[in-house]
Computed example of a mutant assay.
Amino acid sequence: MAVSLDSGGSGRGRARWKPKAEINVTPFVDVMLVLLIVFMITAPLLTVGVPVNLPETEARNLPAGEEPLTVTVNADGLIYLQETEIPLTELVPRLRAIAGTGFDARIYIRADDGAAYGDVARVMARINAAGFSNLGLVTDPVQQ
C-alpha cells in the first residue's frame, strides 16, 4: 500500500501520514513477465514425442482438439503408447484404462516410413479387435 506525506494544513510543520488508494502494479508486472518467459521456454519442450519418420501424403490436417491417444510404431517395430514403450500384448489393456468405457475415443497411429507393414497391421488389428473403431493414420504433408 502506498503512502503519501501530507501536511494537512495545520501549519505546525508536522507531517501526517495519509494512505493512498492506489495499487502498486510494478510487482505484478514483474511476476507476469517472469511467468511469460518461463512459459515461452517450456512450451516447445512439452510437445516432444517419439521420433519417427512419417510418410508424406497430400492429406489435409485434422482440426486441433483435445489431446489424442497416440500409438507409435517405429522403424524397429517397437510400439509406444503416447511416449511410453510397451509390448503389443499390453497395448489393449492400457488403451482401455486410458479411454475408460468409451470405445469411440479417437486413436492416432503414427508409423515410421521404414516400419514393416506387418507390424503396423498387427497393431491396427489388435486395437480394432478390442472394440476401438475410430482409428486414424498420421502422416506428414508433402513438401513442395
Rank of each mutant, 00 (worst) to 15 (best):
T139W: 02
D112M: 06
E58T: 11
I107N: 03
K20W: 11
P63Q: 14
E56Q: 12
E67I: 02
D30K: 07
T72W: 04
V34A: 13
G118P: 01
R96I: 05
E85T: 09
R14Y: 06
P19H: 13
A125C: 00
D140Y: 06
G13K: 05
R106A: 08
E22R: 07
G13M: 00
E85D: 10
Q82K: 01
I79C: 07
K18A: 15
R16V: 15
G65A: 08
M1D: 09
A15E: 08
S133H: 12
S7A: 10
L88H: 14
T70E: 10
P63G: 13
I107T: 03
K20G: 09
Q82L: 08
A130C: 05
F103A: 01
D119F: 01
E58M: 04
V52K: 08
I107R: 00
V48F: 08
R110L: 06
T26D: 14
L137D: 11
M124S: 14
T47V: 10
A129W: 00
L62M: 10
R16F: 14
D76M: 04
P19K: 12
D6F: 08
G8L: 14
A64F: 09
T42N: 03
V52H: 05
S4F: 07
R14E: 08
T101Y: 03
G102R: 00
I98N: 05
P51R: 07
A99C: 01
L5H: 07
I41W: 11
V50L: 10
R94G: 00
D104N: 02
G11N: 06
R106S: 07
M1Y: 08
